[in-house]
Simulated assay, not measured.
Amino acid sequence: MTTSNLVLLSSVDVAQFHHTPFYCEENVYFLCKKLCANGTADAEGSDLFVVFISNEKKQVPLWHQKASQRADGVVLWDYHVICVQRKKESSSPHLVWDLDSSLPFPSPLASYVSETIRPSFQLFSEFQRFFRIVHAPIFLRSFASDRRHMKDSVGNWIAQPPASEAIVAEDGTVHNLNEYIEISTADVVKNVGVDLLNAAFTQKFGVLLSDSQLEEFFSLNS
């Protein structure tokens, strides 16, 4: 990242966005809607992508997270969800909107990857991160959650849910969060190319990448 890129970025007040701890998927849903509504993103969200971060064992380490009790901000999430805004101008960095991060909001993708994902950090295989990238317009139409994953075996809330109504998909589906966070290494793409970008624009559950492919994906030209 160059100094000129830093100059182009201005911090946004994170407090203006809907945020309920431990409901990152709903937080990002409303964040995308707000970015579209206030003109920060395209009105249809065509420049936004929702990114689910998880793995088969539901153990993914991410740094600089507000929920951490450690100085380095590391948290071992079962899954996490962020929004990436893909900029077409070469002079503007792609941006990461992570409501749970202590980094600048938003952050350039390159610095977010370096500081939060730390791909150069040697991890045991069970902690390897995978990224399900879903085009925001598809996500906003298709995503649904009745919050069942946040209840214990007797029906009590593990964490207090948002005050808003549960999100229902346009087709009437009431819950499909599990399909977004389900990760199989067999589904990870082998090659990053324009065909992959086209797939991300059309597939309900997007495309699945490894951490070494994330920046390459967003560098593709459609």
Rank of each mutant, 00 (worst) to 15 (best):
A43R: 12
H19W: 10
L197V: 09
Y180S: 05
L197E: 05
N221W: 07
V194L: 13
D100Q: 07
E170T: 08
P162G: 06
Q128Y: 06
N198F: 07
S145N: 09
A163N: 12
N178D: 14
L9D: 07
L76G: 03
A43F: 10
V81I: 09
V60H: 01
N176P: 04
S222T: 06
L177H: 02
Y79I: 00
A159C: 13
A199R: 15
N55V: 02
S91F: 11
S125G: 01
V134M: 01
L48V: 04
Y23D: 09
S219E: 13
A110G: 06
H149V: 03
V189T: 13
Q203C: 11
V14Q: 12
V189K: 15
A163L: 09
T40A: 14
A200K: 02
L76P: 00
R129H: 00
L177N: 04
F17P: 00
P21L: 06
Q213I: 03
P108Q: 08
A166E: 11
K151H: 12
D211E: 15
N198D: 12
I82D: 11
H80F: 14
N178T: 08
H18N: 11
S91V: 12
R129C: 03
Q122Y: 04
S54E: 01
Q65M: 09
V134I: 15
E216D: 14
Y180A: 02
Y79Q: 05
F131R: 08
H135Q: 07
S68E: 04
D187M: 09
D146S: 14
Q59R: 15
S46F: 10
I181M: 10
L214M: 05
G206Y: 03
I183Q: 02
D72C: 09
N191V: 15
K34N: 08
M1A: 13
S145F: 05
D211A: 10
H175N: 15
K190V: 14
C24T: 07
G73W: 14
Q69E: 13
Y79P: 00
A67I: 06
E44H: 08
Y112K: 03
Y180E: 07
N156D: 11
R129W: 01
P61D: 13
L62D: 01
R141E: 12
D100S: 13
L103Y: 04
L177A: 02
N27I: 02
S54Y: 04
G45V: 02
K87V: 05
G155Q: 08
P106E: 10
V207K: 08
L123D: 05
A71C: 01
L62P: 01
P21H: 07
D211H: 14
V174L: 11
L208W: 05
L177C: 02
L209Q: 06
V60I: 13
C32N: 08
D47H: 05
V134H: 00
K66D: 08
F17A: 04
M1C: 09
A136Y: 01
P162Y: 12
N176I: 06
E216I: 10
A15F: 06
R118P: 02
E126F: 12
K34C: 03
P61N: 08
S10W: 10
M150E: 07
C83M: 12
K204G: 02
H135I: 00
E182G: 03
T116Y: 02
K151Y: 01
L196V: 11
N178C: 12
T3H: 11
A163Q: 10
